[in-house]
C-alpha cells in the first residue's frame, strides 16, 4: 500500500526482497470490489452427533421449557401477557396484534414461593411500603394547603375568566400559570415553583427577561372589551 504521496501503484516495500516477484499469486490483481462478507469456507463443519442420547436431551429440554412456561416462574405467566418478542430479534413487521388480545385478560399463574427463605426485603408484605419510593408520587394535600387541587382548576379557571373580563393583565399570566399548575401537581415538588405568589413572581421575572411572550400574545385588551370573548382562542387562524 503506497502512502503519503498518493501517486501511482508503486508498492512501498521492495517486492523482490520478500521473494514476491511478478506473476506470482502473492500480489493479486488489484481488487475493485470489497471482499465478500462471508468468505467461502473450505469445508462444512462436521455433522452433529446423532443418537438416542441427543434425541433424549433435545426432547427433555423442549419439555422443560414448555413446563416452565406454565410454572408460575415466568411472572405474568400467560404467554400472551408477556412481550413475546425474544431478545436479539429484529422487530418483525409480521407481528400481528390480535383482536382478542385487547379484550381477554390472560390468566396469570400465581407465583408460589416460600418467601420466608429469602431476605426479608423481598417478601410481598414488605412490598407495599415500597410504593412510597416510586418515582411518581401522588399529591399529598396536607402539605401545601394553598395549592389548588386538580378538581378545582376548572373552577378557578371560570373564576379567572370573570376576573379577566375586568381586564387585568397579570391575571392572564395567573391563568397560564394555573393551567400549568395543574400539571405541576403530579410532578415531584420543586422548591418555589408551586405556590401561587411565588409562581407569579417567577413568571413575571420570566416575562421581564423576554419580551417575546409579551409581544406575541396579544390578548386583545387594548382593543377593548368587545374582544374579550376571543381571549381564550388566541389568534384567529
Amino acid at each position: 500500500m503506497s502512502r503519503g504521496r498518493g501517486r501511482g501503484t508503486g508498492l512501498s516495500f521492495n517486492a523482490e526482497l520478500l521473494g514476491v516477484g511478478r506473476g506470482q499469486e502473492a500480489i493479486p490483481a488489484s481488487l475493485l470490489t470489497p471482499p465478500p462478507l462471508y468468505p467461502a469456507r473450505l469445508a462444512p463443519p462436521c455433522p452433529l452427533v446423532e443418537g438416542p442420547e441427543s434425541d433424549y436431551l433435545l426432547a427433555v429440554r423442549k419439555e422443560f421449557l414448555h413446563q416452565m412456561k406454565s410454572s408460575g416462574f415466568q411472572l405474568g405467566g400467560h404467554p400472551r401477557s408477556q412481550n413475546t418478542q425474544p431478545p436479539g430479534a429484529p422487530t418483525s413487521a409480521l407481528k400481528v396484534e390480535r383482536y382478542s388480545d385487547r379484550y381477554q385478560t390472560p390468566e396469570d399463574i400465581p407465583l408460589q414461593l416460600d418467601w420466608s427463605r429469602f431476605p426479608a426485603e423481598l417478601r410481598p408484605e414488605n412490598r407495599r411500603r415500597r410504593i412510597k419510593r416510586r418515582p411518581m408520587p401522588t399529591l399529598t394535600q396536607a402539605k401545601k394547603p394553598n395549592l389548588v387541587s386538580r378538581g378545582d382548576v376548572t373552577q378557578t379557571l371560570d373564576e379567572l375568566e370573570k376576573k379577566e373580563k375586568s381586564g387585568d393583565k397579570s391575571e392572564d399570566e395567573t391563568d397560564k400559570k394555573e393551567g400549568s399548575d395543574g400539571e405541576d401537581e403530579d410532578k415531584p415538588k420543586l422548591p418555589g415553583a408551586i405556590e401561587d405568589s411565588e409562581g407569579e413572581l417567577e413568571d413575571e421575572e420570566m416575562d421581564d427577561g423576554t419580551d417575546y411572550a409579551n409581544n406575541y400574545f396579544d390578548n386583545g385588551e387594548e382593543y377593548g372589551d368587545e374582544d374579550d370573548d376571543n381571549l381564550d382562542e388566541g389568534g384567529i387562524y
Binding site: L37, Y38, P39, R41, P44, P45, C46, P47, L48, V49
Partner: peptide, 15 residues
C-alpha cells in the same frame, strides 16, 4: 472426537 463447538458453523466461522 471432534468437539461439539466445531460441529456448528460458528466454531469455524472466519468472521
Amino acid at each position: 472426537p471432534v468437539t461439539g463447538l466445531m460441529r456448528m458453523p460458528c466454531g469455524g466461522c472466519p468472521v
